[in-house]
Design a protein around this nucleic acid. Structure first.
Lengths: 199, 199
DNA sequence: ACCTGAACACCGTTCAAGT
DNA sequence: ACCTGAACACCGTTCAAGT
């Protein structure tokens, strides 16, 4: 754990954690270019090169932002009321809608997380694998309940993820106008696919 | 036309065209960050701020790179032997495969072209609309030939494009391992979708 | 109309030094 | 172990000046 509690009961964030906080805020406001180590340091109350004591370089700091984002998604996924009470196809649909909502709300984090990493962090790889297997098992449950067509679950999962990912990315680029008849927002695109994947 | 021919028969590129050439090459080699105006100028044989006489700023130069890329795709699309002799579903599939091949071959151009543009160039918008309508009419022809399921052509086209786009983007991020059983490369993902969209 | 060279502000990164 | 301040090389952009 990176957050400790002082004897006065105040949550005290480590410098490392405050640096990641600052980087995330700057990223949300202006993309990776706006994450200058000078501003990061200033926001965290340290000098402009204190970050180098915690991260190898700027990319390593951004990798930590992405890793924390994925870790939080994992926690949220574990907390969400799952397969037991709701129909499996609804669970799957809700999972993809959550993905779209997160991406639209935090476009810079979305772009960062799915960008290329020369720093191959084990943390990032593990989080990605975890998300992938959660999607695959949701697909398997929906197939078992006969609310989703048959086929290799990994292939079906890859198809669903690609569609959701692409719909969001095109929407963020402004290449899909959200209004106008016949136009589909990312939620609609995901729904269209899931409807057509029915058995 | 930006290329004129000298009286000796040599194709002479305008400075503007040479600047776009240089920017494209640097982009392919190292992404947008590698496109420094100093290197662009050097490669084009001019000073490091000659580009400002042709483009408002760096983003405007990159917009010109994207616009030229889209214009070339349009030419290629117009040249390709179309709907007449081949089955409509094959034409549609070939169109999406061409999209995937282009993106995998020129990842930096792909990312650039579909990124956000604060410079809203009319050229870019026109090229995007042209590509979109080409896809929609391919969908309509396949539907008319009953080799593609019914539904609003714009919605079906949006679904297909989102899937191809997302499959490529995930592959470029290294989030889809190309080998291993059950794993699907972008071509497979597109094929899976088209197969499931059959009537 | 098109280009150059100097200059400015800014950024990532390194280094020697401090507690 | 963690941090600071000065310094270096590099970059986008501006400006005055040249033909």
């Amino acid at each position: 754990l990176t957050t400790s509690t002082s004897r006065y009961g105040l949550a005290v964030e480590s410098t490392r954690e405050r640096l990641i906080d600052a980087a995330t805020r700057l990223l949300d406001e202006g993309g990776p270019a706006a994450v200058t180590l000078r501003d990061v340091g200033r926001m965290a109350g340290v000098s402009h090169n204190a970050p180098y004591k915690h991260f190898a370089d700027k990319e390593d700091l951004l990798a930590a932002v992405a890793a924390r984002e994925l870790a939080r998604q994992r926690v949220r996924r574990r907390r969400s009321p799952d397969a037991e009470d709701r129909p499996a196809d609804e669970v799957l649909r809700a999972m993809m809608h959550r993905y779209v909502r997160w991406a639209l709300r935090h476009p810079a984090r979305f772009k960062l997380t799915f960008g290329s990493w020369s720093t191959d962090s084990a943390e990032l790889a593990a989080a990605a694998t975890d998300a992938r297997s959660a999607l695959i098992s949701a697909v398997e449950r929906a197939q078992a309940a006969h609310t989703l067509g048959a086929g290799d679950p990994e292939r079906v999962a890859a198809l669903i993820l690609a569609t959701a990912h692409g719909a969001v990315d095109l929407a963020l680029g402004g290449h899909v106008s959200r209004t106008g008849k016949g136009r589909a927002d990312p939620y609609d695109v995901v729904d269209d696919l899931l409807d057509r994947l029915r058995p």
